[in-house]
Design a protein around this nucleic acid. Structure first.
Lengths: 249, 249
DNA sequence: CCGTACATCGTACGTTGTACAATATACAAC
DNA sequence: GTTGTATATTGTACAACGTACGATGTACGG
């Protein structure tokens, strides 16, 4: 009881910063945390977040499922680790001009590209990501785009969070509508043939005049294929305009 | 083969508009779609989306689990129905002033209130919700706040989608951080005691000068309790400012 | 009055994350 | 060199999920 050798399970923070105690007794470890995380990222990239199961991941590493719990306390922590490595290796581009707007636009585009390349990340990432090295470096780098604009520290954090939340949502919506279109057995024509009559009957222009008019215009404009990217482009300009209101005052 | 009596399973649209064929043969139905949906909404309201299982829902209705599949083709369609009834019964408030900004602010606040009252809806609702009667009425009503401002039809749709996406994300983040705080076994003090030393060691101000300064300021300003509502207030003003750029031009 | 369409429901399958206990291994201490 | 122990690995097992399938009973159309 009192002499029980407590093996405190590694907290998430220790894993993120790779601050494991490095014990020496017992058999050698056949893997590293990085290998597990890398395999998980590869699997999620190729087959999506729902294909990332403990069993599949263990299989891809040539181990039994339960073995992974030696390296990671649970699936939640695994996803956090995946996200942080993604942030650490994130590609960045230079701003296209000297102004704050160019810098923030580059930040937005880089994040959008990241989430489009790894759709599982947009779906998985929580509002406040865990404070790993990758996240911290990203936060530092992106905050610099807002430095020297006359904003207070709190405003800088608010502004960045606002921009990043928009990008993440846009990417998530884009990936989702893409997945829905792929998963849908019906083509657009088939869907319209099946549901068109009912829709026409029920969406009369007297009950919903504005909705019918605007909805039809929007549907024709972007034929649902480039819908998501258009929404991102529109939203990014609006978001930057919104930030301009507190920057250029 | 050719004379096979095909029982076409009801499409989602028919369910949303309650356009079921109303067959007369066989035993009486013991429930209605509305009763099932209402019970599902009540269950999700009280215990969250993850507690909404077919078994629990059937139990709350006094039926066997598989019985529900008589009324709804699957869980996906059930959630769509839940969302549409939520939209149909959604409470709206009047704008606080005569301008477009007051109208849009009212739309944003109404949506935020809806998603805060029914957190599962913010988590479940897809980017493009199904075209049920509730969704259509909501779309019509909210578009009217954008009418007569000189925007094109496509721009009106873009602007509304942009605003609603922001609100949904803000509400989702708010609910998530609230849930995390409740689910966390540790209090803030405990967490800090456990992770503070490592964090202090690893977050040195030389590697991350801006991040440390801004992060500390942000952390102190809103002590994580009213964080989410603050983010909504800030983001709403920024979003409206962003839309102003294309409305007041 | 009968045949059939349909509501109801019990059972079962494949899937998930992971708790638990058994086994094998390699270093620390003597 | 031997022994004790911490630990990596793994097989089995559990509870929960959505839902496919088939049996059973009911009530209306012919």
């Amino acid at each position: 009881m009192s002499t029980a050798t407590e093996t405190p399970k590694p907290h998430l923070l220790e894993l993120l910063w790779r601050a494991a105690p490095e014990a020496g007794r017992g058999p050698r470890k056949g893997l590293t945390v990085d290998e597990v995380v890398a395999a998980a990222v590869a699997l999620a990239d190729e087959e999506g977040l729902e294909a990332l199961t403990v069993r599949r991941l263990a299989q891809s590493l040539g181990k039994a499922p339960m073995t992974l719990y030696t390296y990671v306390p649970g699936k939640t922590e695994l996803v956090a680790l995946m996200l942080d490595t993604l942030f650490e290796r994130m590609a960045t581009t230079d701003a296209e001009g000297p102004g704050w707007r160019d810098r923030l636009a580059a930040v937005a585009r880089d994040n959008y590209a990241l989430y489009r390349a790894h759709p599982w990340a947009a779906a998985a990432s929580p509002s406040r990501p865990p404070l790993g090295p990758g996240q911290c470096a990203k936060y530092e780098r992106e905050l610099r785009a807002l430095e020297g604009l006359g904003l207070g520290d709190v405003e800088m954090d608010d502004a960045l969070a606002h921009l990043l939340a928009f990008v993440r949502t846009a990417a998530r919506d884009a990936a989702q509508s893409e997945a829905e279109r792929e998963a849908s057995a019906m083509s657009d024509a088939e869907w319209w043939q099946a549901n068109g009559p009912l829709l026409a009957k029920v969406l009369d222009a007297e009950r919903f005049p504005t909705a019918v008019r605007v909805g039809q215009a929007a549907g024709e404009a972007h034929d649902a294929a480039y819908d998501a990217d258009h929404a991102f482009a529109f939203g990014m300009e609006r978001t930057l305009d919104g930030l301009a209101a507190i920057i250029e005052r």
